[in-house]
Amino acid sequence: MGRIVFGGAMSHVLDPDYYDRACGAVGRRMVEEAMAEIAQMGERFSATRPDALVVVADDHLNAFSFNAVPAMCVRIGRSVQRMSQDHAEAFDKVLDHMPLTYPLHEDLANAILEQGLQSGFDLALSWEAPVDHAFLSPVNTMHGPRPIPPLVPIWINCFVAPQPTARRCFALGQHIARVVARSPWKVGIIATGGLSHFPELSLPRVGETDTVFDRRLIHWMERGEHEPLLELTGDELHKSGSHEFLNWMVLLGAVSPARADVRYFGELPRINLAAVEWSLA
């Protein structure tokens, strides 16, 4: 019987140069501290000898704009490509030196998709969508030079209103956990993005965060109290700059009622950097 052997969540622009430009030396130092913790999380994940890694993240209007914006989408097929961008700027630059192609766990992806459709989860599918920094920055930071196991990328529409609800994202995680339990595989799952940054997606407010809101989220995750998180509204997530917490809600559904261990939490003007791991023993 399969099981989830690792659960983690982390910020997803893991690039010292980016934070040096955005926040100065303190930005570089803090993201390097966060990356060191995420690398250790990756070592613990690799030690479980996993068959697959589910990565729940969002698209930054790179893969799906604007012919269709799926609320939730599973990447199927045999491999996935890194997003390409000429003259990359800002968070896109983090991709520049990463490998171009990554293997997918085709059977697990298809199981999540097909069993979802049979049980009321009408997930979108893609054979072609590339993945951006939201997927690849955490995956590469976790693994360093070690081989990356076959991935199952899952996109949540965190940014293009109207978004799926926190409750529905949690239910997707529960679905993933059921699929894994019926499978023969040992599976890790990570959610990426956050914590608070870019409130209301407003350019003049880049540089603001809501640390009080983040500490409430962390408090509930540390206690394994997920019921209050199900009540989070789109308006709360938008105002606090917590859009990407929807990815974390999927992870919580997959690992609930496990409790979170915070490996890193650091306040920068631009974002609150975080790295969190769940005890699944």
């Binding site: 209007l61 990359a88 968070f91 997606l201």
Partner: peptide, 17 residues
């Protein structure tokens, strides 16, 4: 951005970000 342009696009267009 005020007129509805998504933040991640206005922050990442090469040469104009």
């Amino acid at each position: 951005n005020e007129l509805g342009g998504y933040l991640h696009l206005v922050m990442s267009i090469p040469g104009m970000a």
